[in-house]
Computed example of a mutant assay.
Amino acid sequence: MREEGQVRVRDVVEALDRISGGRMVKDWNEVTSGANPYVVTKTSHIPGKSVIEIPGLVFGDRDKPVRRIGVGMTLTESMIELASGMELDLIVVHHPVAEAANSGGVPFADYLPLYKLALIEMHEAFHGLHPGLTLLHGHRKQKTDIAFGGLPGNILHKGVTLEGIATAGALLARIREWMGHGIDRELLAAERVIRGEPTLQEATLANPALLLAGRPEQPAREVLHFFPHTGFSMAHLEQALALYPETDTLIASISRVRPDHPFVAFARERGLNFIVGNPHSVEILENGLPLAYALEELLPQTDIFLLRERMTAVGVGEIGHRRMVEYGREMAREHLLAASPRAVHV
Rank of each mutant, 00 (worst) to 15 (best):
P107Y: 11
H139M: 01
W178I: 11
L291W: 14
R140Q: 12
A240Y: 13
G22L: 08
G159M: 03
L171T: 12
H225A: 00
V93A: 04
V71Y: 09
F266S: 11
G288W: 08
E30A: 13
E81C: 02
K116Q: 09
I183F: 12
V58W: 08
G132N: 11
L212P: 10
T32V: 13
L205S: 09
E222D: 13
L156E: 10
V92W: 09
K116W: 05
E217N: 01
F274W: 09
L188W: 12
V106K: 13
L151K: 09
Y111F: 03
L88E: 08
S281T: 14
D63H: 10
V97C: 01
I183P: 04
A118F: 02
E197G: 01
G196D: 13
Q6K: 09
A343C: 00
L88T: 02
R310Q: 14
V282A: 06
A118M: 03
G180V: 02
V346Y: 10
A292V: 06
E246T: 04
D184W: 15
A339M: 11
A343K: 00
D260A: 11
V193G: 11
P290V: 07
S84K: 14
E330C: 05
D27I: 02
S33D: 15
L162F: 01
G149D: 12
V223M: 03
L90R: 08
W28T: 08
F263L: 04
L295Y: 11
G60P: 14
Q201N: 06
A100C: 07
H261L: 01
G231F: 05
G164S: 03
S253R: 00
N273W: 13
P96C: 00
V257R: 06
G132A: 06
M24H: 12
H45F: 13
G153K: 06
K143C: 07
F274T: 11
R23I: 04
D110S: 00
E77H: 12
H261K: 01
H130C: 07
A242C: 06
E296D: 14
T167S: 09
R68K: 10
H335S: 00
A339P: 07
A203E: 09
D110M: 00
M324H: 15
R67Q: 12
R174M: 12
Y111Q: 05
T302S: 07
A98S: 15
V160E: 15
A189W: 07
E163A: 04
F263R: 06
E318F: 01
S253W: 02
E99W: 02
A189F: 07
D248A: 10
H225G: 01
F148Q: 09
G34C: 05
N207M: 06
E191N: 11
D11G: 04
R256H: 13
S103K: 04
F108N: 00
E163W: 02
G277L: 02
E309L: 01
M1G: 05
